[in-house]
């Protein structure tokens, strides 16, 4: 772990305090692997992954609802696990594979979860939808044959103020039965 790998921008970086190579202070340039690409970003210790994705990388699918925190609109996948980007420090995501909702579309090809949300009317205002889609994708990867009860238990970490849960649950149930 090179102490000198600390960039100086904004606040002066002090890396090797007391000869300690494991401490980051101030701004630092790091590389995050996002949707299969290595992207250089500049973060402070207090910077959340959500801020980096939205403000530096323009990936605005994940949403910021700071007053509520655990609402799920900020859900991304880190090494395949559904994760709240708003409560993850950007520095913690270094060296990991981050996937956002933007990765679920490739040209004209879209993930079956997105198609399922459309088919079952699993959205209304759309604000929670990207996070809900990512959570549903991560859930189905862990529970490919989930029951209705398991779906309800797994997807309780996403809040939809429009109340579209029924459509989302139907989407997940259909994909679970279809083995998606």
């Amino acid at each position: 772990m090179a102490a000198t790998a600390v960039a100086t921008r904004g606040e002066p970086a002090v890396a090797a305090q007391d000869g300690n190579t494991n401490v980051v202070s101030g701004a630092k340039e790091i590389t995050l692997n996002v949707n299969g690409e290595d992207r250089k970003v500049t973060v402070e210790p207090r910077t959340s992954l959500l801020e980096v994705l939205r403000d530096q990388l323009g990936l605005t699918g994940c949403k910021d609802l700071q007053d509520i925190y655990v609402d799920g609109a900020d859900t991304v996948m880190i090494d395949g696990k559904a994760t709240y980007a708003g409560t993850t420090f950007a520095l913690q995501a270094e060296g990991k594979k981050i996937r956002t909702v933007e990765s679920l579309r490739d040209g004209r090809s879209i993930d079956p979860v997105i198609a399922g949300f459309v088919k079952h009317d699993g959205l209304q205002c759309g604000y929670c939808t990207p996070g809900f889609v990512v959570a549903t994708r991560a859930f189905l990867e862990q529970n490919p044959t989930a029951s209705l009860e398991e779906i309800r238990k797994g997807l309780g970490g996403n809040v939809c103020r429009c109340g579209t849960y029924d459509g989302i649950t139907k989407c997940a149930l259909e994909l679970a039965k279809g083995g998606a």
Binding site: L155, G157, N158
Partner: peptide
């Protein structure tokens, strides 16, 4: 009841 909390 949240996969985000269960997995992390």
């Amino acid at each position: 009841r949240a996969i985000q909390v269960q997995q992390n």
